[in-house]
Amino acid sequence: MVHPTSNPISDRMRSSPAGGASERAAAYLHPGQLFVSADSHAVTTILGSCVAVCLWDPVTRIGGINHFLLPTFSGQGIASPRFGNIAIKDLLDQLAELGSQKHNLLAKMFGGACVLEAFRQRQNHLGMQNIEVARELLESESIPLVGHDVGGQRGRKVVFHTDDGSAWVKVL
């Protein structure tokens, strides 16, 4: 089942993720983790109010994805990739370590649902806060956001291909 979004990301998303899957190693991303690779990987993660930012360098074919739960680390607790500002910075750092060039990077973003119907009119729900942090940070880093499937009211299963940036989304 493909999410009938009004912001289509790519034609690749309207087909099953099985295309080319046998050529890519599979990985699963848990909340608070991030994954980067210079090899071809199909990375799966499931998002509710959480957001995943996917970055890839189409020249070097290096890519990565994070999955963060909370918008901004405020100084309380541990500065972990559970927080959007940490997760995006860490993702950029790790991609650079593998040899990606920041000026080549492209971005896609997923998740940030408001999973309760009663609160969908609120603009400050957790999912929306996560989306805004991601947008602001990508803009500040001058990384083009070339695709997104965010907001709404349902969870999402996302499969992201690190080598070419293609992504598949299933609404849950």
Binding site: P31, G32, G48, L69, L70, Q76, G77, R82, V115
Partner: peptide
């Protein structure tokens, strides 16, 4: 509506 993974992080759960 959502899920949380053990070990439960207190900041995440409260948020």
């Amino acid at each position: 509506n959502d899920y949380i993974v053990k070990p439960i992080d207190s900041i995440e759960l409260i948020a």
